[in-house]
Design a protein around this nucleic acid. Sequence first.
DNA 1: ACTGTACCCTGTAGGC
DNA 2: TGCCTACAGGGTACAG
Length: 293
Amino acid sequence: MPELPEVETVRRGLAPVVSGRRVTALDMRRPDLRFPFPERFAERIVGQEIVSLERRAKYLIAGLSGGEDLVMHLGMTGRFTILQNGRRDTPGDYANAVGPVPAHDHVVLHLSDGTRIVYNDPRRFGFMIMMPHADQSQHPLFRGLGVEPLGSDLTAEYLAGRARGKKANLKAFLMDQRIVAGLGNIYVSEALFRAGLSPNRAARTLADRRGAATERAKRLVPAIQDVLRQAIEAGGSTLRDYRDANGASGAFQDAFAVYDRARHVCPRPGCGGEIRRVVHAGRASFYCPRCQK
DNA sequence: ACTGTACCCTGTAGGC
DNA sequence: TGCCTACAGGGTACAG
């Protein structure tokens, strides 16, 4: 669920609350999420100061004063919630241990100012791992990642170079985290609509015979960057589970042109086409066959 | 080297 | 009302 804009929104909500705070306790309500929790997880975190909270692709990275990083992924349904002053709107009160623990609250991070950060994840596709900060770029999780789409590394020439000779379709190409890191099912569909490119088109057509970027690649870069920037500005997209760290929904779902809009009329003025749903690699794709070639 | 499928897990929506 | 199926923001392990 959470793609780059959602993870970035969570990061921005959490960062001011956790930065400079010390972890005073860690509760684990089960032994694992998608992976087992790190060895001696609590001992490695408790007593450390959280010095930074960064994002790479869809990963959140908390830098700890002891030199290790806590790397977190939200999977499909992961959610961080900030609890201040022992108050909580759902049943269960962590401060007083009153009432049942809410379903799927798997991890609670207690901070030195009394704030607690709760990690909730019904499907448990998310995970938390620890790694030395110095090893980050060489860690298997990060080593093969593609460029950050909002950085200066995403260029038409880069896309053309990676797409050259690939007969896979554009949908799969852009979903591949080794190419562009942080895009997911929603924003690939939306970016392709903005670029006027069909998800069915072969990726190699982003490059010409010499490997130079085509007009298509040049349209794709701003389409990706604009949709991500606008989504971040809107606080991400809430379809079902997603909430930011303060419990607020995103608003960008109201701006979807095609995602989850099968059989609706294309929003481009004068088009009148009908949005289609197709499946690529087991994931739904949405596009307007008239606008996207 | 690619590509497509199955799977991890839970909740929900829709058809009957 | 209830049962059953399909599907959901992600990523990985396979088989072909």
